[in-house]
Amino acid sequence: MNFDKELNARGMSCPLPILKTKKALADMATGQVLKMISTDSGSIKDMQAFADQTGNTLLSTVEENKEYVFYMQKK
């Protein structure tokens, strides 16, 4: 999947992946896509909850070798 920016949140625990995602999206334009990589298993539900509450779109969630890759499109 194409993306405009990548955020490495490996090794970070709640709530850092969400806070860093929020900060990364702040510098992006509407419609752009952020790729976020996390090793925190709690991120799966939290990223969906973040999307639901902020109006950004979680395009996909992929789990690979205990890493979670999210594609979030900015509102």
Partner: peptide, 11 residues
């Protein structure tokens, strides 16, 4: 601090 920062991130 966790709840405050996260809530702020959620708007």
């Amino acid at each position: 601090f966790i709840l405050a920062s996260t809530a702020a991130a959620l708007g």
